[in-house]
Design a protein around this nucleic acid. Structure first.
Lengths: 137, 137
DNA sequence: GAGATCACTTACCTTTCGTAAGTACGTACA
DNA sequence: TGTACGTACTTACGAAAGGTAAGTGATCTC
């Protein structure tokens, strides 16, 4: 990923086959990062790591997500090849979501970060308390 | 973190000293997740893992971040105890940011995820190409 | 016929982010 | 003296994204 600022030509797709550079604004890996670390993306990956889910199962498992945001999140993750959407010819509709092998790798890293945050919460809550700050927006 | 929906009383802070549960909507660990995985939070943690930086250094290192978003991001990470802000009595202003021990732990996990995304970009780009989709919003 | 199920989609309002300019103070230079 | 520069933010306002609520379509059950 070239960081040379005088390089103005749009990059051919073959150049995208090199390792990404998240610190470079224009690098397509930024899009992947955006999807994987999006507010609901992280949580969807974590739930799907436990196994295949239907849409409504995911909705219930991820507290607070709306159908709108869940649909959008799943679409993005599917486009990145992290999630597999399998639709059955049934009524009512039946759609199942599962992780691809690539998605499983992503979910492992996401899971590790999530675990760290969960287990570190008590320490972080002490910082909040010491500074008189509630968790902020 | 109780997921029992009939439990309506606000939780005393002492209850926050237990492990978080990111899947529970009301868990304060959600706030930490939001800050750590925010668009600019990830990248700031990665850059700070390499060492202490001044504001303008960070601005340059993270391609595309505005002063507004950088300031806000650093504020959030500081409140969570992940980043240490050290201000010197100088003009022009001189402020240095570095990771706390807690922040270093977070950055390690974030770094692992970022590395995976960067190295996986070629495979993901193949998915984009196979499905005729450019990276989307 | 009414109500339920499921996986979305749509309409509209609210919140957050991006862009650009401003702030304060010291220093350097024409 | 006036202008420009550096630094780390802050402010104002428009653009973009997210949240809430309702709608869609097809079948099934009572």
């Amino acid at each position: 990923m070239s960081t040379h600022p005088t390089e103005i030509r749009p990059e051919p797709l073959s150049a995208k086959l090199r390792r990404g550079d998240l610190l470079a604004e224009k690098c397509p890996s930024r899009e992947v990062l955006k999807h994987v670390t999006s507010r609901w993306g992280v949580l969807v990956l974590i739930v799907l790591e436990t196994g295949t889910h239907r849409f409504s199962d995911l909705r219930r498992a991820v507290g607070g997500v709306s159908e709108r945001m869940l649909a959008q999140t799943l679409q993005n993750l599917e486009k990145d090849g992290l999630v597999l959407r399998r639709s059955y010819d049934e009524v009512p509709p039946r759609v199942e979501y599962s992780l691809t092998p690539l998605g499983r790798e992503a979910a492992q890293h996401v899971r590790a970060l999530a675990d760290w945050i969960e287990q570190s919460l008590p320490r972080i809550a002490e910082v909040w308390q010491a500074n008189g700050a509630a968790p902020d927006t």
